[in-house]
Design a protein around this nucleic acid. Sequence first.
DNA 1: ACACATTGTTCAGTAAATAAGAACAATGTT
DNA 2: AACATTGTTCTTATTTACTGAACAATGTGT
Lengths: 299, 299
Amino acid sequence: MQNIEDLNTFIRIVEAGSISAAAEQLNTVKSAVSQRLSRLESRLGVQLIQRTTRTQSLTDAGHQYYHSAIEIVEKMAAAEAGVKNQNQALAGRIKLAVPQSFGLMHMSQPLRFFNQQHPEVVLNVDFNDRQVDLLHEGFDLAVRVSQLVDSNLVAKKIAQTHMILCASEKYLQRHGRPKTPNDLRQGHYKLKYAQAKNNWEFKDQQGKTHLINLPTAMIANNGEFMCDAAIDGQGLVLLPDFICSAAIHRGQLVRLLPDYICQNPLNIYAIYPPNKHLPRRVRLLIEFLANYFAGYEFL
Amino acid sequence: MQNIEDLNTFIRIVEAGSISAAAEQLNTVKSAVSQRLSRLESRLGVQLIQRTTRTQSLTDAGHQYYHSAIEIVEKMAAAEAGVKNQNQALAGRIKLAVPQSFGLMHMSQPLRFFNQQHPEVVLNVDFNDRQVDLLHEGFDLAVRVSQLVDSNLVAKKIAQTHMILCASEKYLQRHGRPKTPNDLRQGHYKLKYAQAKNNWEFKDQQGKTHLINLPTAMIANNGEFMCDAAIDGQGLVLLPDFICSAAIHRGQLVRLLPDYICQNPLNIYAIYPPNKHLPRRVRLLIEFLANYFAGYEFL
DNA sequence: ACACATTGTTCAGTAAATAAGAACAATGTT
DNA sequence: AACATTGTTCTTATTTACTGAACAATGTGT
């Protein structure tokens, strides 16, 4: 089968009227053009152009092939442009998965912003806490809150959160107001996030770590529910700032041990398949989110 | 612009369902197929196939490109087959030029034979004594009677003729019956072919050359006319056997000095442009003529 | 008819592209 | 959890294509 470049060269030779002229138009030397034509003729087993050093004329076969060649080269270019545009045009769908709590509380606004800025992009947002399978379910992007990250997926960190220990005034009045991690060891109860470890880690300003294991008052796998339970006075809770900040701001919860770093910080990632050629709109959205959350304060 | 082989590989990958299977179908190794796909995607700047080591699925772009690719590859194959067939099929026109006298007298029969054997070939025969310009006038083939041959054209010898000295009985009765070249020097006249040299050369059986220069009774540039003039007794004439043999056979002319070789033999050539890819029908005709005239006796 | 510039081809050397094969990590299955 | 199979990557080898110069062919203009 032929090389497209040879076809293109043949067309140029015909239209330019000579091999030398074609070479110039193709930004190469005449010997290369001559070789391409010879090669094409050899592979076809047909003389395409009857030529002397001064004149050239298409043979019957050449005439016929010329028209086919034009069609092929045009189709090729069209096919290429088709998919290239598809990638570079913003227009298109982005299917993304976001965690339910974080998504509803903090991604609603940026996603609406993005949609206003790029109305030709259709966002298809799936709020879902299960670990969706990006590749098999056709997701372009997922937002994940976690410390660890799947292998074989690319993760770009877009925000960092902190874990905050808090309780309601009602709880504190009943169980006391701890000032150090050690104060927790007596008469306190925790609300446990289902997948979290049993131990709480607190790091003081000297960098020393304090491991605390409290009796559990309740277990759940939903941050907002736990936040509500804490507001209700059910126990101490260690929550990411993006969940509890608003309640603290409203005075429903009180932040405890503010001078200690609680647990390891959680990162928020944009996760996507390791495509060499990510559609532009997806790249753009990732960038937009990273910018949006840079210096963002959760309240 | 893309390499067609990459397109074809992409199609095979899609249809075979995996890179390994495609490699097998394409008689190559999977690494090569993987590279071709990567290359294609890179040049397009788009992911075509979303793949893990176990599953593969076309992206939107891939789906679109797949259909274009099939069209292109098919068009390519069709264009190729089109011109290849045109060359290998016998059907088609052969435009050939033949000298008038020789053509009418000795090529009429073989050409009719050829046409019967290959009725799908259309012969376009131009009887013409001028030197046609093969390349510019679109001739596939010319038959030439000459000692020398143009450069830059390919010549295949298809027959050899001999020059025969002859005269009519009427002439001989009036001027005597020469037995040796020397006998010619007294009381003889020649009919001269326009483009021929003035001297006649005769080689005897010992290889000795005799140069004879006779007074000219008449000059013409047509062999048949000269033959008729000789029959009429106008003079001695040196004619190629293909012109005078019939008259000798009929007793209208007498061959003189049969033991001497007259002049250099003339060759008959099939002449054609130096195409690397001569259409099959033309090659066939050349071969046919060479066979036909091998061992042919002009009478 | 003749020198002349220009053209297309060829050749040898070089650069680039591609293929091959081994090693490796990913993945789904038994 | 072991396993076979898959796709990718890397290095090496091979093939292919380009380059630039030399050359012969050809038409032009004098």
